[in-house]
Computed example of a mutant assay.
Amino acid sequence: MTDDLPPSRAGAGEPSGDVPQATPPPDAPPPALGRGGRRRDQAVALGWLVVVWLLLWGDVSWGNLLAGLVLGTAVLVFFPLPSVTFGGRLRPGALLVLAGTFVGELVSASLHVAAVAVRLGYRPRGAIVAVPLRVRTDLNLALTAEVISLVPGTLILDTDRARGVLYVHVLDVRGPEDLTRSRERVLAVERRIVRAVGSPTEVRQLDLEPVERRNHP
């Protein structure tokens, strides 16, 4: 008899409350943006383009502001870029860690490059290292590439957007241990960025084992 069953189980076709909800895979693509989301992202991009235009001129005036709006609109209309939407969460503590670590690496790398430059008769060897990232979103790819390129001695030569791979040129490579250390440093930068601005799902992806990451195309 079904009269004694709870209301949620009275119907044969209704799902039970004890059935766990399906969760999307870690590398599932983000949901498609609606028209409002695209307009918001375009408005933010236009604002940044106007700010860059004003900084280039060094003068905040109505004429420069109007010219920046016109040129920024033309860039967005005639040279559209793939939409990159921020779906993460800002964490002030992790942001401070990211900023402090970046400053420390900037000073350390600058001193190292300066020592290599003034060392008489020494010819440093360079290498190109392929580093697969664990979070393959466009935003994480761009932020990690920017932070790595700002540190002296490392430069992003190319990116594989489909596979989430950064190709990094490293200065002063003396052995295999330097290559391993360079990969670990790129992944450490990615970890700090994701912990600072990533979503909870992206933070969980940082703990995936290499085999698990290969199983998520």
Rank of each mutant, 00 (worst) to 15 (best):
R119P: 04
A99P: 00
L171G: 03
A10P: 00
L139S: 08
R89A: 13
V75N: 06
V168I: 07
P30H: 10
R185S: 15
G58K: 08
V44W: 09
P217S: 05
V60Y: 11
V97H: 00
D18P: 00
S61V: 04
V60C: 01
A114D: 01
V168W: 00
V50I: 15
V103P: 09
L143E: 04
R35M: 06
R123Y: 03
A22P: 13
V52E: 11
F79Q: 01
D178T: 12
P29K: 08
A10K: 15
V75C: 10
A127V: 01
E209C: 05
L69V: 15
G13E: 14
L54E: 05
S108T: 14
G153E: 03
V84Q: 09
T23E: 14
A32L: 11
P31K: 08
V129S: 04
T154F: 08
L33G: 09
V197I: 15
T85W: 09
P210T: 07
V189E: 04
Q21C: 03
P217M: 02
L141V: 10
M1D: 14
R213A: 00
A12T: 12
P210C: 04
F79V: 10
R38W: 11
A43Y: 04
L157Y: 02
A109V: 03
L96G: 08
L179D: 12
V103E: 11
G37S: 08
P124R: 07
F102K: 01
T180K: 06
A28K: 07
V118N: 02
D158N: 14
L187Y: 02
P20C: 10
P30E: 14
G87V: 00
I193L: 13
R9S: 10
D18F: 11
V151Y: 00
A109E: 05
G47D: 07
G34C: 10
R192F: 05
R161W: 11
D18N: 06
L98H: 01
I148T: 15
P80G: 12
L141H: 04
R161C: 06
L95A: 09
V118G: 02
T144A: 13
L66N: 00
R183T: 09
R163Q: 15
E190S: 08
R204T: 13
R9H: 10
V173K: 07
P7R: 13
T101W: 09
